[in-house]
Design a protein around this nucleic acid. Structure first.
Lengths: 193, 193
DNA sequence: CGTATAAGGTACGCCACGTACCCTAAAGGC
DNA sequence: GCCTTTAGGGTACGTGGCGTACCTTATACG
């Protein structure tokens, strides 16, 4: 009965199994027993590595997730912003994003988990991408230099986020994205002195 | 052994007990057994009225909650907006708001609950308050008529909401509210053609 | 006064988290 | 090449919480 997996190999199998469970049933449905069963091991091996279900959930999400950060360069601020929002909308409405949202919901009342999630969500990288976008717009003369401001840069994604929080539906319609850009983001950039 | 409570009276006691449990431990900690114990009854009486825990949670929240909608009239758009945000921040950071957020988090993966919550959250009334605020600003000549737009009206509250979602902390600092108004809302209003 | 209705009491089935123990395979030093 | 340490496997259990079942008892109402 030769092979008993160890260390690295076993850990990978557990993460893989947990990720599949996450995809299938969301975080709420990700059972420790089922993860163990699917990984062909038992709960001991899991609890020796992660202190509780939530930690495993986050680790698994991280394992299946290496979201590429888009760096659009369409030539106009409007085009860049729309592209960013569309990519984000795509990601969040994918099964992948469902997992993320399910984790976020579960972490909402647990500050420690929220911290972990924030680290992994790549919010900082996202903000920086929007700032360089604004930089380029300034260089083109499309926006006043004062538009390069963290709060301005963060606003569109925050609005998209809030949209998801309110609806909970699988995806935000494209018109909403356009509206965020045309009715909020661009006027905001333009209105800064 | 005289008084056995019935109907209205018992229902009130249950809701009261549930509301207290919500306040003490949030939705996640609101146990059916504890609610029953605190109300001095048993789970039968509860399940005869609400089909599951979530329904009771929402009913209890509604029971303890009649949030007064503020209608500030400070004379300037900036003052009005700040006042609205401050009141909302106060409400959401109160124990009361913690309950609401805890419920929202729990409802994030259950569409039916999300619907119920949306009804009770008074988002529509809130949007209307912001729109009339903008109307008054237009009448004073503080804002262009095009600023009266639902998306514009909803933006500050959405940003506050997203702020809560990201931090999860008890309260958003006042500087953040000022920043939302000065760096986003007012430039946005000003920038609309 | 009697009967339908609803409350009280209690126990249970189920499921999931996390823990405890004991057994066994693998890794590594001597 | 043995032998000890380490880590995985198997399994059972304690705890807690949701929702249900069933019976008993009080109360309202005709």
């Amino acid at each position: 009965m030769g092979t008993r997996r160890r260390g690295e190999e076993l850990e990978g199998a557990i993460l893989q199994a947990a990720a599949e469970e996450l995809r299938r049933s969301g975080y709420a449905g990700m059972t420790m027993d089922r993860v163990a069963a699917r990984a062909g091991t038992n709960k001991n091996a899991i609890y020796r590595r992660w202190p509780h279900r939530a930690a495993l959930g986050i680790a698994a999400y991280r394992h299946l997730s290496d979201v590429a950060m888009p760096h659009p360069d369409t030539g106009t601020l409007r085009g860049d912003a729309l592209e960013m929002l569309r990519k984000a909308n795509e990601t969040w409405s994918s099964p992948h994003g469902a997992v993320l949202r399910s984790l976020l919901a579960a972490a909402a009342d647990d500050p420690a988990l929220l911290d972990l999630m924030r680290e992994r969500s790549g919010a900082d990288t996202m903000d920086r991408a929007w700032l360089t976008m604004l930089d380029r717009a300034v260089a083109r003369g499309e926006a006043p230099p004062t538009a390069v401001h963290p709060r301005v840069a963060a606003t569109p994604m925050m609005l998209l986020r809030a949209e998801y929080a309110m609806r909970g539906t699988p995806s935000v319609p494209d018109e909403t994205l356009v509206e965020i850009v045309d009715e909020v983001f661009l006027p905001l950039v333009r209105g800064r002195v």
